[in-house]
Design a protein around this nucleic acid. Structure first.
Lengths: 227, 227
DNA sequence: CCAAAAGTGTTGAATTTACACCCATGA
DNA sequence: TCATGGGTGTAAATTCAACACTTTTGG
């Protein structure tokens, strides 16, 4: 192996929940950056860049993410290493891809300009390289993991109502969930702790606010622990 | 990034089910190779090697596995990319690690010599680099996946009895399973097809032989399909 | 009072688990 | 015939899913 022949890079699929307009239900959105040089110049691509010699892979992912979109992820996990010989036309590039979740407030702050734009995760244009496949795989992982872990909390703030938590699940899984059964499931899992506060201002009975139970891991990654 | 500073390698955790002696229950075993140069000279390590410039990652894993142990895996899947800065003392090495399953017959053929030896997966010596962590993670993935996929078939031959299939599960999960309920679970999953043959020679009622149902994928890897 | 979402209760269905029991073979 | 694992039956326990109903607020 040899640097002239092989490059190691990181890329990140960033997910946020954002509503299109007022009153619309939130949907999964990801930020993409426009390529300013070839190959695939002008096409949209995942944020990323080369790995520095003295930088861990996850640090490289967090850095390139900060540099291109100014986002601070709430959750970051390695997705897969993509390294097929022909995935980049000129040189050989092996990309270690991460996926990240950011809070809605974060996503609003994120710079959106000529070269950074948010897209609906289910309706992407044709992207550079094999990035469509990568996003599809990240989406699949997110949806699979939503069903058996607590990652939904990474989309929410310090306190939240059970309806908000349920809406996260509904937006990601794209299906309605029974509020009564959802409540019991969450309570049985001990993933949340009830606070004494409630959220006022709605035109109905004020819901109780909950807090994430820090003694329960977001996900079980076995011996790797929190990545 | 630069070749003098960063090396890309592949390693593989290979699992086989082998009985210690006659009549003993089979247990999970993995082959390791002895390092013949520094760092960690003399220590046992996972088989692997550098990625060739014009070779896919999975091909590199299969090749290095063939070259060091002469094994042909029945199942091969990417595990994780390990790339912490300090995981190798001298140079920076990023390893894309795969895990593989081989049949018992294969494992018997496998060369065992001065520099290749099979170890019980749960009682390993102190290995080179971060390879103990890697094996622990691979074990965790194998055990997790055994519960919701059909990878157990990768340990077995063309035809097998349900008792043999159950013993694979029991050996990997290290717990006894109810034969009656196991049978119903497997039959409900449509993962196997009954043949007309039965296995004679036992000192009891001859069990029916089954065949793996090829129309059911071994595992669901979403958009990645079979790796 | 009414509408709307919060929150509780209840019931039947589906799934899991434990274990009793019959079957077919070799010795 | 007996021991042994193959294979079937069944009932209790647990979990899941659907939905009725009560509560609490704003208007």
């Amino acid at each position: 192996m040899n640097a002239q022949q092989l490059t190691l890079a990181v890329s990140t699929v960033i997910f946020a929940l954002r509503a299109d307009g007022e009153g619309t239900a939130a949907s999964l959105r990801i930020p993409l950056v426009r390529r300013i040089r070839g190959p695939f110049e002008g096409r949209w691509a995942l944020p990323g860049g080369p790995v520095e010699a003295r930088e861990n892979l996850s640090a490289a992912a967090a850095r390139s993410l900060r540099e291109t979109t100014a986002l601070e992820p709430n959750y970051l996990e390695q997705l897969y290493a993509f390294g097929d010989v022909d995935r980049s036309p000129d040189q050989r590039v092996v990309s270690v891809v991460y996926w990240a979740l950011v809070r809605s407030e974060q996503a609003d702050i994120a710079t959106e300009g000529e070269n950074v734009r948010w897209f609906s995760a289910d309706e992407l244009p044709e992207l550079a390289f094999d990035h469509n496949l990568i996003v599809d795989y990240a989406l699949w992982r997110l949806r699979t993991k939503m069903e058996y872990s607590r990652i939904a909390h990474a989309f929410l703030g310090e306190t939240f109502t059970l309806a908000e938590l349920r809406q996260v699940h509904e937006a990601v899984l794209r299906k309605a969930l029974d509020p009564a059964n959802f409540r019991r499931q969450i309570e049985a899992s001990k993933a949340v702790i009830a606070t004494e506060q409630q959220l006022t201002g709605g035109r109905h009975r004020p819901p109780r606010l909950y807090r994430y139970n820090a003694s329960v891991e977001l996900t079980d990654n076995g011996p790797l622990g929190r990545p």
